[in-house]
Design a protein around this nucleic acid. Sequence first.
RNA 1: GGGCGUGUAGCUCAGCGGGAGAGCGCCUCGUUGACAUCGAGGAGGUCCCAGGUUCAAUCCCUGGCACGCCCA
Length: 909
Amino acid sequence: MLDKTFNPAEVERKFYDVWRKSGAFRCDPDSPAKPFTIMMPPPNVTGSLHMGHALTFTLQDVLTRHKRMTGYDALWQPGMDHAGIATQSVVERTLAQEGSSAAGLGRQAFLERVWDWKEQSGGTISRQLTHLGASPDWERERFTMDAGLSKAVRRVFVELHRQGLMYRDQRLVNWDPKLHTAISDLEVNQVEVDGKLWHFKYPVEGEADTHIMVATTRPETMLGDTGVAVHPEDPRYQHLVGKHVILPLVGRRIPIVADAWADPETGSGAVKITPAHDFNDFEVGRRCGLEVINVLDRDAAINENAPEDYQGMDRFKARKQIVADLEALGLLAKVEEHRHSVPHGDRSDVPIEPWLTNQWYVDAATLAKPAMQAVQDGRTRFVPSNWENVYFEWMRNIQPWCVSRQIWWGHQIPAWYPLDAEGEATGDPFVAMTEDEAKAEAERRLGKSVRILQAEDEVPADNRGLDGETVYLRRDPDVLDTWFSSALWPFSTLGWPDETPELAKYYPTDVLVTGFDIIFFWVARMMMAGLHFMGDVPFHTVYIHALVRDAHGQKMSKSKGNVIDPLDICQRYGADSLRFTLIALSAQGRDVKLSEDRVEGYRNFATKLWNAARFCLMNGVEPDPGFDPGKVGQTVNKWAVAKTVRAAHGVDEALAAYRFNDAASALYQFTWHQFCDWYVEFAKPILQGDDEAAKAETSATIAWVMQRLLHLLHPFMPFITEELWEQFGGGEGSRLITGSWPELGEGLIDADAEAEIDWVTRTIGEIRTVRGEMNVPNKAEVPLHLEGAGATTKARLDRHATLIRRLAKLSEIRTLDRVDTRGAAQLLIDEATAVLPLAEIIDLAQERQRLQKELEKLDQEIAKYDKKLGNADFLNKAPQAVVEEQRDRRADAAASREKLANALERLVG
RNA sequence: GGGCGUGUAGCUCAGCGGGAGAGCGCCUCGUUGACAUCGAGGAGGUCCCAGGUUCAAUCCCUGGCACGCCCA
């Protein structure tokens, strides 16, 4: 026998092992079944599970389990991403505590340390995912740094390079002065800060006392100014264009140029130009032929290109010093408080600097074209569809993608540079899959003997650069952006570039489930890579789910202290409760506002289900192998079958449209408010009665309904359903996870039976309402007398008298020609007037008031219908069915009104 | 500045061209052989505002107000 409440912890442990060991999570490339594939967005190897993961993985698991039960060969491909910068930082922090450093260790030793760390501490999320009941094919788990995936990365790099889509370029990049690497635009956050706007006077050359005023939020960059720009049509400055200013503190003579970038409306209308340290200025500088002078080093301290006094000074210290020095020279015109946004590295959280470097770039604009086309053509579809705009917007404005990173952890760029006579990398690199191939290629092209130097190798004494007898090559020390390997995930995990059966069967995949914040980072890049290398989209649907927020809509963050930990919730309420909560709150286009109250509510739902099953077992309900839901005779059983079919269809439709909340609510509603509230109550008298045939049929029907229900609920609440399935005769051999999704035909719906039992529930409900409003004690059984009942009502009453008496707490039900209404509570059951003769119980005045209130309501309704039906336009233009409906309703209301008026009159006799 | 989205019960949110809904909270009553993690009943709404389209608008359109997010 079941305990009184469900104990999740034990069941969760038990079945996760059972499932995994039974191979239920496995896909089967050899099976003839149609594939259904979801690529799990690989979480960071450094991360731990948060509520956002819980949501996205729950939804993926629902889809996977559902399709698996529907007969598909389901592959949910799990894995992790190596998170270059994040992982390197983690290990560097450990090293720092040991008094060591990456540089001190050297590249090889450092990488060994990272791998050690990964083996011991990495991949937390994968382990935590099991607590949620996630059912990916763990045996196929992949890591972006695996040998196979690394091969795919090199192959893509080499191919893109060969095709001219991967190239080296010198541009400004977002430089992170803390992590010492370039980062992509997407890894930069604009942070609003309270800063200052400093206005400086730059003296014009050869014109004593003439100054031109410029403003900046970053005074230290003035050391690298190489021009001052004014708008070509700004009358104030026409005469100065072509002249020069003498840059204070530096003494450099820099031109005043005309460029539309200068906005006459802003400040003085003149703007200082620092091409080496500002993206806009870089463009101005290029247009106007200005010099590019880099004044910052990799730490964003002032370098040797600036006057000696400032060299080595940190950027913020230099800022203060320069302001002070200019003020001393009388060149500081004014200082304004200024709120503006400053780009920060999203990993380091320090202000980034635009910095001039050589990096590898992908020609994203070229790759974006087919990727946009595919969405335009509907070969890939976003759900909800409005996210397509976000995708298009970004794709249209796409910039060259800087893919090189100045760190060690990641896929080292497969490019080998010849060394010049000084031992520095020079000229065009040889790009190849392997060192040997690079060497062979270099020998072929240079016609000389070639030797590859490792990172640590000294430059040999006989190195003469390209002129020497032997040319030495050294590999590019940089690694690729982590997203570069993630972009290949939908095919690299399936074995590409090898032509594997998996690749043939599972690509293109079906659905990608992810958050909107990842559309640029990842979805767009997978689209580009998939189309370019596989010739097809990586998935036909992208389901974009919401962000999880706290109960008040605040983003969860550690600093706010409003984080809800999914594992903690699982422990306290069970994984099924958390899953069901997240699903029930996953309405399209709205964020998930999670609170513990909601989880508690759905925990109660699980308990309710548990107790319904408990009832079944206590009453000897057992599945009947020969049971045919189309052949039941009892009306309540027909009703239960019909409602089950409707629930199943509701879930099917909702899932097909990715309306997870609708699926959840269909199941919740059916389980609680139909199965538990009514069907179980209807079944009780039968099961406890002595009509053996009815008993057997009802028992079999309940079992059938319960079993369908467990199937339908399984993708949403896998643990409790699997446990109940076992308790309920599922048997050791067959697990729900591999069970068959209910496919129930419309033919099983008996509309007459449905209407009849719906009438019973409505009747009981109305009697209960009157009892409640009249304060009839719950226990008191009272008689019900009916007058004016038609044949149908009489027949229904007759057939279901036992049920109605039992559930409405009636001592008897009698149909009479004329009932005594004095001092009785009265209600309408369709055409009949029913009375509860409660003279000694009820308060006459209260009953009169109640009836009067009902009357008023009906009067209002009738007036509303009359207004409509009195409108000729409505009668002429509205569909006939609508007019009829209004007429019917008006007639019903009027009939009810008459009976109630009559009842009111007869109340006192 | 551009774009997307949201304003419906105390709270969190479904819904929708023709009868205002759920969960939680609140109030009343209840120890019946599944279940107090429960049962029965109830109160509670200018569907943000103003126009327009329509026979009919909470729903469609326009404008406004408020809020949220993304991009610059």
